[in-house]
Design a binder for these strands. Structure first.
Lengths: 345, 345
DNA sequence: CAAACGAATGTATTCGAATGCACGATACCG
DNA sequence: CGGTATCGTGCATTCGAATACATTCGTTTG
């Protein structure tokens, strides 16, 4: 039957191209993957093959190639929440670097939950990505070591709290950043009673930023007031909740240092809804510099991290390892921060 | 103490498992992929195999499986901009449905550019995903047809403007939504001079929403004033720009209908910076209901689409086709909208 | 009691591309 | 003019898992 072919039009393979060009399949492969070091092909053959490729609309089958080369040209990335502008920008930076290396990025949200973090690792290992970038929040050292040992691929993480001897770390010295910003609030702005809106101690940035805050108070001769030290869970809603709790307790500090912008915005909105003026009654300082920080009124004073730089550093560290597997040990890369002064302080 | 395992240790394969369990490789395969309809395995063998799997920490190689089965358990999704809350929620909904089907989602941003849209198609076809969900903005019918024909996989898109005879469409009747909201502004709120902030006609939602707006004016006995009909490019910055242009021209309408929330927020901020009161001097109506709409003050009145529902409809349509390839033709799925009244009108 | 059946497992092949090796042809050298 | 690099290409094999087909039993049935 003549319809045998047309009934189930399959993607053409290298064999089809080879047949049309009158050469063998490996020759097609060589034409398409020619490198300086590899075998040479005559211009004549090359031209015929390329013509055949064109005529058939041939596309290499990435799956077959990956099976043979043991490389998938894909890296996995796990972050807490892509809707967070900070992570989003970071992810885009990673993608940009990856694209330069002809890699794709498989992105996953962990939603700050341990379950999703583990699920990501399972998937990623099964998928056979070539490397992993992640922001582990809940994963233990033991988990990380387990997955790392099983996978035999490089890992690069954001967060100085990860101590694994063979995993590269990009970090921001947020303890120092919080320290400096707090000192600035006290010394330059003159706030005397300061509160801190943090997150649970089991979440990595919590204790570090609290330490920086507390140290600044001490160094300025103030003391940490437990009434004004209170935790949320990173969400805008929890920022509002914190304010309600403070108001119920009856007294407010003159400035609040908040561990992330989303909560800081919640704090501002809740304060305003309760009739307080920001910054005259209570000043608010955030952390991250997400796009919403410029939308809220008063615009949010915040400690800006450089998510683009962080993403680039993560990606570059990973690709260095992919290109040179002999790199060993734990490498550290510090990314900078900057205080962005707006109207909320 | 992290395990220091030899770096060259390979992942175990089915052969390794088979050897350890004293069976053949296909038997291992059968034990792991047992279905009701497939061959049966004795409980004894099954137990030995599973024990061996456990002992070696075996994980199936997804790449090899994909090559053989011709399925990658991955779908590709292209959207304009993941940092946009609307697309983000939609993407999450797609991922949720995908997860239920044991599928992964490869996400890509097009940034509203034609180049990126085509690049996505190239990559996705090469990657061999099993299906595609996208929000094509610039791709022409010819492009879509070309990629669709080459790939032999199902496509599902968001946007009624796509007319391909074999591509399913999910859409929101945004022309009617804009019409109704505009009528409401005129009839119930009493605004008499209305302006429209749109986007270029070559961007799909532009003409549709403008038509709805214009039709409402006509039906209420008003006429479209070209001085108050002006275009931006979806970004917050361009929303601000539009206001500057209007102010330079010397006159402002009493209400502005804006085709998306991000621009609407830019409009509000720029109006306030110029000393105008929203909504007393100028009312603003947005479209999308992104999270920032509740952060800006006054909170933005907007037409809410249901991104979660849209994502689910897209994903379900796609999986229906994946599970039943005999489905033919262009199927239409409408998703609802709702006017969310806040303080900007 | 032999033929037939079916459950349980093994054997051989397949998916598409990459690559080590071998072979033929040409060119160069003594 | 024979020997040997060198170049271009083909052949055979490989990656790991799925699957069509073959085989081996034990069991059932006419």
């Amino acid at each position: 039957m003549p319809t045998k072919r047309s009934a189930k039009r399959k993607q053409p393979t290298m064999y089809d191209v080879a047949k049309l060009a009158g050469v063998s399949q490996p020759t097609v492969s060589r034409v398409l993957n020619r490198t300086e070091t590899s075998a040479q092909i005559s211009a004549e053959t090359s031209k015929r093959v390329l013509a055949a490729v064109d005529q058939l609309g041939y596309r290499p089958n990435v799956v077959a190639r990956s099976l043979r080369t043991r490389r998938t040209q894909t890296i996995g990335m796990m972050i807490a929440d892509l809707s967070n502008g900070f992570y989003h920008t970071m992810a885009r930076a990673v993608q940009d670097v990856a694209r330069q290396h002809n890699y794709e990025v498989l992105i996953s949200n962990s939603d700050h939950t341990y379950e999703h973090e583990k699920h990501f690792c399972e998937i990623v290992l099964g998928r056979g990505v070539d490397g992993v970038i992640m922001v582990p929040i809940h994963l233990t050292e033991a988990d990380l070591d387990h997955y790392f040992a099983q996978s035999h691929i490089p890992f690069v993480v954001l967060g100085i709290h990860v101590q694994h001897p063979n995993i590269d770390v990009v970090y921001v010295n947020d303890e120092r950043a919080t320290y400096e910003a707090t000192r600035w609030l006290i010394t330059d702005c003159g706030y005397q009673t300061l509160g801190f809106v943090g997150v649970s101690d089991i979440l990595p940035p919590g204790p570090r930023r609290l330490r920086g805050f507390a140290r600044a108070l001490t160094d300025c001769g103030l003391t940490l007031d437990p009434r004004f030290t209170i935790n949320g869970d990173f969400t805008l809603e929890s920022g509002k909740q914190v304010v309600h709790t403070l108001i119920e307790r009856g007294e407010l500090p003159s400035a609040l240092v908040v561990v992330n912008d989303l909560m800081a915005i919640g704090v501002i909105l809740a304060l305003q809804e309760a009739g307080y003026n920001v910054p005259d009654d209570v000043a608010v300082l955030g952390f991250d510099d997400i796009p919403e920080a410029t939308i809220v009124r008063p615009a949010l004073t915040t400690i800006a991290q450089d998510p683009r730089d962080i993403g680039q550093k993560l990606a570059r560290a990973l690709f260095e390892r992919l290109e040179n597997p002999s790199i060993e040990g734990r490498r550290l890369f510090e990314s900078s921060y900057k205080l962005i002064m707006r109207q909320s302080t």
